[in-house]
Design a protein around this nucleic acid. Sequence first.
DNA 1: TAGCACCTCCCGCAAATAGGGTAGGCCCGC
DNA 2: GCGGGCCTACCCTATTTGCGGGAGGTGCTA
Lengths: 210, 210
Amino acid sequence: MDLITLAVVEDDAVLVKVLRAYFAQQPDIRLVFVAARVEDLLEELDEGLLPRVLLLDIGLPGLSGTEALPLLKDKYPALEVIMFTAYDDIEHIYQALCCGATGYLTKGSPLDQLGPAVREVARGGAPMSRAVSRKVLGHFRPTPTTHTALLTPREQQVLQGIVDGLSDKEISTRLDLSTLTVRTHVKHVYRKMQVNSRTQLLSQHLRGVI
Amino acid sequence: MDLITLAVVEDDAVLVKVLRAYFAQQPDIRLVFVAARVEDLLEELDEGLLPRVLLLDIGLPGLSGTEALPLLKDKYPALEVIMFTAYDDIEHIYQALCCGATGYLTKGSPLDQLGPAVREVARGGAPMSRAVSRKVLGHFRPTPTTHTALLTPREQQVLQGIVDGLSDKEISTRLDLSTLTVRTHVKHVYRKMQVNSRTQLLSQHLRGVI
DNA sequence: TAGCACCTCCCGCAAATAGGGTAGGCCCGC
DNA sequence: GCGGGCCTACCCTATTTGCGGGAGGTGCTA
C-alpha cells in the first residue's frame, strides 16, 4: 500500500495532539504538516512537499477553511481536501463541496473513521459522515415531503416552468393558458411556498429546500 | 448488532446465487426476499415482511429499477434502497438519487463491499462506490472552468447576491453600492452568462451550468 | 344543495427588471 | 502617455413581475 502524505489544519491544540497520536499509529499515513491557520499552510507549502490529502477545519482564526479552499484548489488542484469540522448544516456542506472538497467529516464521528477516510479519498473516493452523505443526497430530492405536495397539479406545472427559467408568457405558451391564468397560479405558488419573488423561489430551490 | 432484513431484486441468476451465498455468511444480515422482477416485489411484499434494505438492480426485464423506485418509496417510505447496477453514468446515478435511492453500488466493485454498504445504509448512511460518490460531488462543482471565471470580482459578488435570492436593492445594500451600479453589473453578468433574465440565470445555476 | 377546492380569465397599479446608451475615475501595462 | 479594463453612477424606455382584487365554470362531497 502506498504511503499517503497528510496535512492537517486545525486550531484546537488538544485535538491536534490527538490527531498526531492517532496518525502516528497508521503505518500507511504520514502526517507531514500541521498548522493552526490556513495562511500558514498557504505560505509554507510548496510543490516539493505537497501532501496528498489535507484535513481542513472550517472554524479557524483568520481565513476560514471554506474561504481558503478555493485558493488551495486553485494552487494545488490535485490536493484532496477533507473538511473536518463541527458544522453539519447543509449550508456549510454545500459550500465546501462547491469549493472542491472531496470529503466531509464531522467532528462528532469517531476518531477511527479518519484513517479509512484518508485512504478512501486517496483512492479516489469521497468519504463523508453518515449524516453528511444523507444531507448531500437530500439535495437531489426535489420533492421529498415538502411544500410541493401542497401544490395542485397545475401549480406544480407552473412551478416547473419557473424552475426551467421561463417567463410567465413562455409558461402560458407551454401550458396553453392565458398569461393571466399563469400569473394567478404563480401567485398561489408564492403564497404556498412562502416566498415573494421568483428569485427567492429559485434560490430556495437551489438550496434544496423545495 | 441488530439483524438487518434484506431484499434483492436481480435478474442474473448466477449473481443471485453468489449473493445468496455471500449474505448467508453475514450473521447480521438476513436475506428475506429475492426476485428477478420488481413487479414481483411490489405484488408479494406487504407491510408484515417489509425488509429494512433493498438491493435493487436497474437493468431488469419489465419495469426498470429506477422506474420502480418512486412506486416503492411511495408505498414504503422507510425502505432503504441501494441501487446495485452496472450503470455508472451520471444520468442513471442522478435519476436514482432523485427517486429516493440512498445508496449506489456498481457491479464492478468487490463483493465484500455489499455487507458494509447494507449496514451503512441501515445506520442512516449513504453508501456509494468510489467513482459514484465522486460523480455525485461533481454535481456540486459548478465552476471548474466555466463562465464564472470570466466575471470580474465585483460581478461575481453581484452574481452571488442574485443566487442568494436578493433583489438589486438588497445587493446594493450588501455591497454598499448604488442600485444603479448594481444594475450595471447585473447587465454585464447577463451578457457574459448569455442569459437575459434573472430567472434564466438562476435556472442555469440550478442545473450546475454556472 | 351548498360549500369547497380548483382552474380559468380579467382589471389595475406599483415596483422590479431588461436593454440600450453615456461618462468620469482608477489602475495597469504597453 | 495612452488605451483598455474595471468600478462607479446615471439616463432612457419597454416589459415583466408582485400584489390587491373580482368572476364564471367544474367537480366533488358533506
